[in-house]
Design a binder for these strands. Structure first.
Lengths: 370, 370
DNA sequence: AAGGTAACTGAATCTAGGG
DNA sequence: GCCCTAGATTCAGTTACCT
């Protein structure tokens, strides 16, 4: 995959490239509402050495040796709010954000993103199967990190590939705790000396689950703390476009090389289980129009209720009439009802759900769309 | 255990009683630096909107109590800072605090307690083995809650019973993620109508681990959001003193009755924690934590030796103590011993090997690894 | 009595799209 | 924007009831 651009208004989007410099500045230089997902792995360390910059590129005062806890938190909070603000501007209305952190910083990040108007969807715990032990025996083994998944605002229509994740999880819906090993062995990038290239490289498995779950192929994923580019590498594999931002030249170099050597999975393997919601909607009236059921025919439910089909595709039962859903709900005293699975007709002595008729229509539509 | 007081300066400490009224006022009326541990389960500020129905159309019984309603984050933050301040004043210099919450509130609580000068020691994730699913398939199953463990200040000499917790976990140091079932079945307290007495009762197994890990017998444990008194019940079982604060008279009544019926290490606690976990290796500590065997119960071997179960899942016999395996080996003068088949407990006059308890746990786990 | 099935439940920020 | 309707969606239990 080569670097390319998508235009949005007057500004081009530098897809599949790594931008250098301060992430807040760089984000503010990109066109607003242009990114589908942001994955952020911000610095955890609160003992900042004065390398924080505001959006206007002014330097945040250093936390020197005499730093006091409150000042330090205040500086970190300002930095956090600044990059969260820049990130929010970049996101499309239905975009979403992931942030990962530990107890040192995640509470401040979480509070800040709520304050900035993001809407938390889940907190997800990465449960490390092979964490570093607590050598001094003074605390619990720090065996997890926390991720926050948030939409740009309350009510936004975020992407969530529920069925795909359920399939990943042996048919059971994915939980908010993910058991995954840390990044080591051959996956861990090394520099020329054989030392680890980056102190906090995240496992690709983590990004895999994030991107499969909350993006679609072709989406634009931005990582403002790109490091050695795990986000970009997995995005490329999965057929998503990425934008990385990283200040350190050494990390950028490693990331460039790493990503260049990756080839995306072929398109067909990127297809994931589709939700039923994505199927075209079929009005029950079509079933009648096509003569698959005739006006006057009786439908029955498993619970023994019955209703008669009318010419306009509505049902009439005992003192109730309306759509297949409305009549089902009323007869059951339920808040709602899926008439397609509730109602059955008789064929050769057997009860068949009317949903099979809908499926017939859908199959025909698939053969010759429009 | 009857209500008694310890004097600290001029003011008495109302041990093993439930105070009524606002927790901040009540805490401020107690003598400063008098409490060893505070366990707090504050309102989560869930912000639920409409009704939620299961796919079978049954309605989910939401936590919509008045005490969980706050007008804004600002109001919630003020409330949080106020009770954290009062709690800090109450703690002894080497005291510690636990808070539990969900993503709705825990980030705000965590940031606030850092701002108030508490020093976070760990965040601990309670991974629920049987959480409520996400019925609409729009998010990840909300399968965990987060606890923050913090000392009163940086550098404080907090209590941490590393060896006891390690023993509870069969010789491996305790991690920051705990797999425990939610509070249901016989453990769940019901009111006269058979409805749950409190919407958010916590499992005793959770408190067991907290108190064994971060207090010593005779310590004073305060819970400012006492509810139906799980903290007090477990504290009493484990020989710790408690102070509860609760505004709602109905909850206080249930808690009083509940705690009165508890005797330290009594058999009645057996039905309190029928826990399940999901690790292939079953530590004997789990058997104790789950209440399948109680601290103080005697185990016997076929050869006539005996030993007593301790709260941390170790045994104590004649001049020997340690794991079920170590104690068995020492008593037999053998190089090793399988404690699971060596030790037996009495049920209905018969000797039953403790291995059947492990098998019970494994059977429960078999269907859902992790 | 034992065994099998149906009903019920849990700290939940739980829809999408057309008119 | 709002309003209305179609119609999609659950896991690990425990308790109650039936044969």
């Amino acid at each position: 995959m080569t670097a390319m651009t998508k235009t949005k208004g007057a500004t081009a989007l530098p897809l599949n490239t790594i931008l250098s410099g301060d992430c807040i500045e760089q984000m503010n230089a990109l066109p607003e509402a242009s990114v589908d997902l942001i994955f952020a792995d911000p610095p955890y360390n609160l003992q900042l050495k004065g390398d924080l910059h505001r959006p206007d590129n002014s330097r945040v005062d250093a936390v020197d040796d005499h730093w006091d806890q409150f000042d330090s938190f205040a500086v970190y909070d300002r930095f956090t709010r600044d990059w969260l603000k820049a990130a929010k501007r970049l996101l499309k209305p239905n975009g979403a954000l992931w942030v990962i952190g530990s107890y040192h910083n995640i509470f401040r990040v979480g509070a800040a993103l709520q304050d900035e108007g993001y809407w938390i969807l889940n907190d997800v715990v990465w449960r490390k199967s092979n964490p570093m032990p607590n050598f001094r025996g003074k605390r619990f083994t720090n065996a997890h990190e926390t991720m926050i998944w948030a939409s740009k605002s309350e009510g936004a229509k975020y992407t969530f590939n529920y069925e795909a994740l359920k399939a990943l999880n042996e048919g059971v819906q994915m939980r908010s705790d993910w058991v995954l090993p840390i990044c080591n062995g051959g996956e861990r990038l090394k520099d020329a000396n054989g030392d680890k290239a980056h102190p906090t490289q995240k496992p690709a498995s983590l990004l895999h689950r994030v991107l499969v779950g909350s993006t679609n192929p072709g989406d634009v994923v931005l990582d403002p703390f790109f490091g050695t580019g795990t986000t970009g590498a997995v995005a490329k594999m999965l057929g998503r476009d990425f934008i990385g931002i990283e200040r350190e030249a050494a990390y950028r170099e490693v990331a460039e090389k790493r990503i260049a050597s990756i080839r995306p999975f072929d398109r067909s393997s990127l297809e994931v289980t589709r939700a039923k919601r994505a199927e075209p909607r079929v009005p029950f009236g079509q079933v009648v129009e096509r003569g698959m059921l005739n006006p006057g025919e009786m439908l029955v439910s498993s619970s023994g209720k019955s209703a008669k089909v009318r010419a306009d595709g509505t049902l009439i039962g005992d003192e109730v009439k309306g759509s297949i859903h409305q009549v089902g709900a009323q007869l059951e005293g339920a808040p709602s009802c899926n008439g397609w699975t509730y109602w059955h007709f008789k064929r050769e002595g057997k009860l068949v759900p009317i949903d099979v008729l809908r499926q017939q229509i859908r199959d025909e539509m698939a053969d010759r769309p429009n």
